[in-house]
Design a protein around this nucleic acid. Structure first.
Lengths: 353, 353
DNA sequence: TTGTAGGCGTTATCAC
DNA sequence: GTGATAACGCCTACAA
């Protein structure tokens, strides 16, 4: 119960050396005789000595500013911010500082990254259009700035790691759900963006359903809602989806792979087709909630938005402040199935705190 | 970027007092003149001063042993242990110590709790049969030992908090899933335990399906598998479930509310009814996995087993070591829907190591 | 190549 | 009531 921990001083005394020498060995600061080093290392291994984190932080008085830049749908950003706030609260008195820049356009994001790059020790990044910022990011990395991506990766860059979902598999999950909940044969429409990630989501979806002869997959239709969906939904978008429904009387399901799910819900509702046409898509927005409750949307697949804010920063901080190595180049978030019955656990739900 | 944090010493200097006095005010140690106290408190509020956690831990050299006692299905315990190990790694060099006692029977659990109660500063508890240990726990609490429950609550005791799922709602989620994936009308069998939690799960299930006239709910059948399911499954249990299936040709689904799900899967498989009879239940064991992959079990509802090991200990530690207040008397875990497609994210999945 | 000394921001133990 | 002073375990000069 009262097992005293071994300290650096203990080791120094035991080996008749000074604390600094032990410190030099432990932190690879050089200037230690090979023999001494070996002796210390062996002894340390035997003991299973672990440095005291509190003391380390206190002595180093680390001070590390991490920048976050994203261009993402507003409501998704909100959930990510919650994760950022939490990690800030946990680590701010260990010296963490966070700068958040939310962009309203890819161009603005470029400027924001450039601007804050001077003041930060690391950068966490979610970019919608890789082509625009790719060069800048590579320059920053070449200059020695540690960069990580979240939500959307920059696979061609030298970023340290990506933290987010697997888009292909996210499509598969939706495919599996639709297959399970659709009772009659017919057509299934895909709505998505024609960017690379939208296509992964379509491919994943098809990989599950292509063997199933009772369904005929139509689309993909490129219909896309704005990022700033708050109250009002783009009428044109709803109309476009309504015409798909009207043109295909044997439509049994719609799979929405982008942020247009609410609009699709409205379209289904306006035509009185709820329940008849199954609706499945991604992410949980304020507007999605009531559509799920009304059984217009049957299921939604989420990707741990909170953790997408929380972990990238935590990992970067531990890298910079504690020299902890990064264990993976891809941290893939869980794909969470949310339906009416477990909805409340995924919408503004902080069971801790 | 380099914003120096305010320290206790800063405050002392500014107010022409010693650090000790500030410390007395901050930690309510008494022996401070009322006026001085007021003056200090006001100034601290203005500044928004936050004590440095690292320094605090270092100076206090806290040493806190938390005991964990549970009597639970083996494989579930395994997942909980992972959470315990993680929190131990995070906090052991802040002075956390953990004692785990896994019981093989309620009687053994009673003894184990009694035995370790002398050596611990707090206790986290999961008990299957409240009646047996209830008195002991209340005695311990009266003696001043902080006790928390996880997975299964002791609602009549004075435990500090419960960390686990809502059993009624977990039944609802299964009801919702079965309603969505079952395409034809018929009978649905419930298998559960006749304890209070098993009944909550049955009630929650019925609350969703009772309005639906196409289903006829039969049971509950009290059939129960042992805790030590490893490779071999109780033949008798499988036979019992097979007879239910044989006796009810129009059975469209089975809802298993206890740890008998795998046995039910075997029964369905042996009779060649996979896909025809939908199968839904709780928790993810090694044996469940292959049954889900083979489409014999359509979905499983999980309850964050990792976090059930992680958080109770973390919360108790923060209470004891940092005097942090406990914010709720119930921390309700998410109900996670796991199907074939997102299975890999819930089975031995540590995306963060 | 090694050692010494002082400090990080708290808490704890004395004196006054 | 209040204030010195020495820890806690580690890091960082600087000296030897």
């Amino acid at each position: 119960m009262d097992m005293k921990n071994i300290t650096l001083t203990d080791i120094a005394q035991e080996l008749n050396l000074s604390r600094s020498t032990i410190d030099r060995v432990l932190n690879d600061r050089g200037n230690v005789a090979v023999d001494t080093k070996k002796r210390v290392l062996r002894y340390i291994n035997e003991l299973g000595y672990k440095p005291n984190r509190a003391a380390k932080h206190l002595a180093k008085r680390t001070n590390c500013s991490i920048g976050v830049s994203y261009y993402l749908p507003n409501e998704f950003a909100l959930q990510i911010n919650r994760g950022i706030n939490t990690v800030y609260e946990e680590l701010s008195n260990y010296g963490l500082n966070v700068l958040i820049r939310a962009a309203d356009s890819p161009e603005e994001q470029l400027l924001q990254i450039k601007e804050m790059s001077e003041q930060i020790d690391a950068l966490a990044l979610a970019v919608w259009e890789p082509d625009l910022v790719g060069d800048l990011v590579n320059d920053l990395i070449d200059d020695g700035l540690p960069v990580a991506t979240f939500n959307r990766d920059l696979p061609d860059s030298e970023r340290l790691f990506y933290f987010g979902c697997n888009y292909f598999e996210s499509g598969q999950v939706c495919g599996g759900i639709i297959e399970k909940i659709t009772s009659k044969p017919g057509k299934i429409a895909i709505i998505n963006n024609h960017d690379i990630l939208g296509e992964y989501r379509a491919k994943g979806f098809k990989s599950v359903l292509s063997d199933n002869f009772q369904y005929d997959i139509i689309g993909p239709y490129e219909i896309c809602e704005e990022f700033e969906v708050e109250g009002s939904i783009n009428e044109k978008v709803i109309e476009d989806i309504q015409s798909i429904i009207k043109d295909n009387p044997d439509l049994v399901a719609i799979y929405v792979a982008n942020q247009t799910l609410c609009a699709a819900g409205k379209a289904v509702e306006l035509l009185g087709k709820q329940g008849e046409i199954k609706l499945v898509g991604f992410d949980l927005y304020e507007q999605t909630v009531s559509l799920i409750e009304k059984d217009i949307i049957q299921a939604v697949v989420c990707q741990e938005p909170f953790n997408q804010g929380y972990y990238p920063i935590k990992i970067l901080f531990e890298l910079i402040a504690e020299g902890k190595e990064i264990e993976k180049s891809k941290f893939i978030t869980r794909l969470e199935i949310v339906m009416k019955e477990n909805l409340r656990y995924y919408h503004n739900y902080d069971y801790i705190k």
